[in-house]
Design a binder for these strands. Sequence first.
DNA 1: AGGAAATATTTTATGCTTAAAATAATTTCG
DNA 2: CGAAATTATTTTAAGCATAAAATATTTCCT
Lengths: 168, 168
Amino acid sequence: MAVAKESPPVSPKNGADQEAEYRAQTRLWLRLLACATLIEGELRRRFREEFDFTMPRFDVLAQLDREPSGLVLGELPKRLMVSAGNLTPIVDRLVEDGYITRTPSNLDRRVQIVCMTVEGRKAFRRMAKSHGSWLAELLAEFPTERLDGLIDELDELKGAVRDALHKS
Amino acid sequence: MAVAKESPPVSPKNGADQEAEYRAQTRLWLRLLACATLIEGELRRRFREEFDFTMPRFDVLAQLDREPSGLVLGELPKRLMVSAGNLTPIVDRLVEDGYITRTPSNLDRRVQIVCMTVEGRKAFRRMAKSHGSWLAELLAEFPTERLDGLIDELDELKGAVRDALHKS
DNA sequence: AGGAAATATTTTATGCTTAAAATAATTTCG
DNA sequence: CGAAATTATTTTAAGCATAAAATATTTCCT
């Protein structure tokens, strides 16, 4: 069960410490995933039942809601942390359904500008309101005064992971 | 923008407080999702590149690794928090590839017992080792002494969400 | 100018995920 | 006993997700 044989990264740790840290890191990951899965599953279910809508579609609208003049299509995969190919059929359907428009730029015909329609904006606001209250309902039992603390911890975690990703 | 018009759930809150809490809850959810997405994406990438394997397949093996005598198939969707139908093709392929066996119970022919093979166990251990060190690498910059605190917070969050789900 | 590299987007192949319906075996109970 | 309800699992249809390859356009460079 020798794990700490490789060169220690910062400070030397004996086997038992290293093992304990491994376990804690794994537990953190499992808790994180469990919380996200739990909340995401419930939000997805409600989006479907109440609005016959999906979260990825809602996420696209949420991005466009903040950009009254529209957004270059290529910005969406970056902001939503998904692949570009993934977005194509989602945007296709949002256009079909009249929530957004997709117009090729005249300056650079590779580029497309996506923009929410008036109806899209209306639909988004209605759904966003429900989304907020669903979240409030799901998180109601978590003490309000600890929300900000947890947000800060997660921000730091996110930063730490990002840094680690940039190094490799 | 009237939001707090509905009857207040526990203690009365004025509009501004309610708005602030909504925002904090949304931020918490977005951070949680961002952290999980970031880590999951990287782990998935490495599983694919290093082992040509997927995380759902690994998750199934991880459950079976803790059960030397095997597991009733129906336990897997519960423990992994996925739908039963989802598991069928994943288990199919793990059987095809020789990592696990699936044998119908003689007492109740609806039930199937899933059990890891010797080779499955070997492959799992190899992958689990890498999985642990990848996680350690990704979380290296997050201070060790705060791991347990964050785990506790997430445990509480998970409990709060579960409670909210059971109520509805 | 004109070919090569870069950029934006779509297509393809594969796999995960869900919900709902279908199948099959067991249990319950009148 | 035998029909109805329950339980375990699979199938189906639809959508999300990725990686890798393809397409189309623009920029860079000589």
